Amino acid sequence: MTSRVLYLFGSAAPPVFDVAKVIEDAQQRGFDVCLGLTPTAARWLEESLDGLAALTGHPVRWEYKRPGEPDAWPKADVIAFAPATFNSINSWALGLTHDFVIGVVAEGIGKGIPLVTMPCVNTAYVQHRRFERSVVELREMGVEVLYGEGGFAPNQPGQGRPDEYPWPRVLDAAEQIVGPRA
């Protein structure tokens, strides 16, 4: 059986603490998972990074590799970026590639790698005009953004429910993009 390679990227929002369960779910669906994090998310999960690397069989990445270093991961069949914060969504849409995961997804658009993202933002952030513009921009570039009906619905500030973050929707979308496992 050939595994489909899923790059699972996450930024610093509370649902990222459930990433081990998401990796296990993805593996049960036949994905070979490579985990990438924003620097802040990597700090949040610092004590779990070795265990997450063992779980995936790949190093967890949050920094760019040096020029000339070989790629540590196989080529992606699909990239899922969740949770994606206000900052990550806006940086990606604007092409501001200061973080490894933002650089990979920004380049992924040009490489034609299928991309799906699900934000994790509160209702105060979505009032900022840039957020909606960024969602529209990403969708126009071919990114499947799971936001609004059928995706993530924002909570009031301080009233997040990370245990209700709809992780299965992200993996369902990744599966639909790449098709059934071989």
Rank of each mutant, 00 (worst) to 15 (best):
E63T: 10
P67Y: 01
R43D: 01
A54K: 09
L45R: 09
E69L: 08
A54G: 14
P74K: 08
L45P: 02
R66Y: 12
D50V: 14
S48E: 12
R61D: 12
E63V: 08
A54D: 11
A53R: 01
Y64E: 08
E46D: 09
L45G: 03
W62Y: 10
W62E: 03
D71K: 05
W44Q: 11
W73Y: 09
A53F: 02
Y64R: 14
P74A: 00
R66T: 09
A42L: 08
E46T: 11
L45Q: 04
L45T: 07
E47P: 02
L55P: 06
G51N: 15
T56D: 09
A54Y: 07
E47T: 15
E46S: 13
D71A: 00
R61H: 14
A53S: 10
E63G: 03
L49E: 05
T56M: 12
S48A: 14
W44L: 15
P70I: 04
E46W: 12
A42Y: 07
R66H: 13
L52Y: 05
E47N: 13
E63Y: 01
K65V: 08
L49Q: 02
P74I: 03
L49A: 11
W44D: 13
G68W: 05
K65I: 06
R66V: 12
S48K: 13
R61Y: 06
E46M: 11
G68C: 00
H58Q: 09
V60Q: 07
L45M: 12
P67S: 07
L49M: 06
E69D: 12
G57S: 09
Y64L: 13
K65R: 14
D50Y: 09
G51P: 13
P70Q: 02
A42M: 13
R43N: 04
W44A: 15
